[in-house]
């Protein structure tokens, strides 16, 4: 029901198009040559990995992309040549040098067929997360119901075995923004489980936020994926401390005394933590993610076309950087977080 307006408008347009006729036409625009594509996301003190491939003309029937393994990729740090990257196959090139925060990284890639492309970015600095406060709010209570089939009575039995409490775990993440510099961020939340069998499992959590930093453009009935990459900037808190609000839904259960909890419903971990990661990201990565998000939400005929951001000169793709800033919060075992 949530998407019904979109649904019926699309039916309306489809109705118009049904009465229309289609004709294949020649493309008479300026045909652009295939371009070299560079993709790389840098992090401080991590290996630089660059992916090179070739773009396809939009009417090309081939839907797979040709990887480029025979290019010469060079790394410049603060405009000084550091090294030539090594091809690892599959279009991947790696450097030995580990970038540091504050460094300006430039990558060039040369190829006999596609010429030379280049891109540069700044490795963003760490920021301080001074605190991460939590609070819990109950949102809904529903009965826990078990269904089973009674063969003797030949009917399905419905049995209430307890109560399910749905709650929101609210976070106030206090970040210290640096003044006089446009900062870009990306919020991520992970769930880390310390398993009884010794494993350590980290999964990405989806979270809600009504924080102003994510903008007010929320078409809640249509754009369910609004700001799916959770990027924001410091427009409203430049140089100040800011408490970012995030919220994660979780469940708790209260079983009836006579209900015996089956083993498969018991937790197989002995500790769980929420990891809140406020990444400092480069402007290029911010713009790239914003445009990727816009492209993800694109609705044919109803949306403006999207130009995916690129900072690769003479080619396309993205060179961005991200610097992780994490805070960990231990949560009770009784919280079932999905």
């Amino acid at each position: 029901m949530k998407t019904s307006i979109k649904h019926y408008l699309l039916i309306l347009i489809a109705g118009v198009i049904c009465f229309s006729c289609e004709t294949a036409i020649e493309f008479n625009g300026d045909t652009s040559a295939d371009l070299m594509v560079l993709n790389s996301f840098l992090s401080p003190d991590s290996v630089i990995s660059v992916h090179l491939s070739k773009s396809n003309f939009f009417l090309d029937d081939n839907e797979t992309f040709t990887l480029i393994n025979d290019a010469q990729v060079k790394l410049f740090v603060n405009d000084e040549l550091k090294e030539t990257l090594t091809s690892k196959g599959q279009g991947i090139y790696e450097a030995i040098y580990l970038p540091k925060t504050g460094e300006r990284i430039k990558l060039t890639a040369s190829h006999s067929k596609y010429g030379q492309i280049e891109a540069q970015t700044l490795v963003e600095k760490y920021i301080r997360i001074s605190s991460c406060d939590t609070s819990s709010v109950a949102t809904e209570t529903t009965p826990l119901v078990n269904y089973y089939y009674d063969y003797e009575r030949q009917k399905t039995i419905i049995d209430t075995v307890g109560t399910n409490y749905q709650n929101n775990l609210n976070f106030k993440v206090n970040i210290a923004d640096s003044a006089g510099y446009k900062n870009y961020y990306r919020a991520k939340v992970y769930l880390a489980k310390f398993m009884k069998n010794g494993d350590y499992v980290v999964t990405t959590l989806y979270f809600d936020s009504n924080d102003l930093v994510f903008g007010t453009a929320k078409d809640e009935v249509v754009d369910e994926n609004s700001n799916r990459y959770n990027v924001f900037n410091d427009d409203i808190f430049d140089g100040k401390n800011y408490g970012l609000s995030l919220s994660i839904p979780y469940n708790t259960y209260a079983y009836d005394e006579d209900y015996e909890i089956p083993d498969y419903e018991k937790p197989d971990y002995y500790k769980q933590e929420i990891i809140v990661d406020i990444e400092s990201i480069s402007k290029s990565l911010y713009l790239y993610l914003k445009t990727r998000e816009a492209a993800d939400n694109y609705i044919e005929f109803f949306s403006e076309p999207v130009q995916i951001y690129t900072n690769v000169e003479n080619g396309i793709g993205i060179l961005g950087s991200k610097t992780s800033n994490q805070k960990r919060v231990t949560v009770p075992l009784s919280y079932e977080i999905n």
Binding site: I5, K6, L9, G215, T216, A217, K218, D219, E220, V221, V222, D223, T291, E293, A294, A295, N297, Y298, I299, F302, S303, E304, P305, V306, Q307
Partner: peptide, 18 residues
């Protein structure tokens, strides 16, 4: 002008951001 990807199919909510 509408920003890349902007859609106003059924709501003017937050249109200034779009």
């Amino acid at each position: 002008e509408y920003k890349d990807g902007a859609s106003f199919m059924d709501s003017g909510t937050g249109w200034e951001d779009k």
